[in-house]
Amino acid sequence: MIPTREEMEQAFAMRHGEELQKKFAGTTVAVCGLGGLGSNISIALARAGIGKLILIDFDQVDVTNLHRQQYKAHQVGMYKTDAIQENLKEISPYVDLEVHRVKVNEENVEELIGDADIVCEAFDRAEAKAMLVNAVLEKMPDKYLVSGSGMAGFDSPNRIQTKCVTKKFYLCGDGVSDVNESNGLFAARVMVCAAHQAHTILRIIAGEYDV
């Protein structure tokens, strides 16, 4: 039996407090990339009762994603935008979702994320991360931006931290652990970084800007 919208809203307010929940419900977050970071971040935000998520990815779920990304074996081959919608609606049926199956570039970025209050960078490749961060900071300096860099490998999870680079730009991760053949990605360590990003977003919405 799926709870009604009212029941869900009451439960959110009970857990988070009514005032904070209103802020969560009134916020739009764009999650760019729906891999290990983005799938975990969007689930955490949907669970928190964020009003609207703009979800962007061009890729399909691959069997090699299942070790860390929040998809299921039967979703292999699906576009991540479709699979994440399915999964988020199962968790939080009334969250407003806007999905874009597209590769983000300097030309389309403003149109894709222009409506977001907060932008979350959750790409895999370093070049894509840098492109998005530069584009948001240059073209949309009023937006908050939360990026993730350095969560590969088997190093201590305690090395993953959140740093406030400039007033509206937050960077989560250990900053150095690059992914390569000898340095793979592990679900829990990626989730630590995803949790840093998701919680930083919630804190920004709450007006708590320090790290």
Binding site: G33, D124, K129, V133, S149, G175, S177, D178, V179
Partner: peptide
């Protein structure tokens, strides 16, 4: 000057 270097993984 702050130079932010990104590494891969996500």
């Amino acid at each position: 000057l702050e130079v932010v270097s990104f590494v891969g993984g996500g």
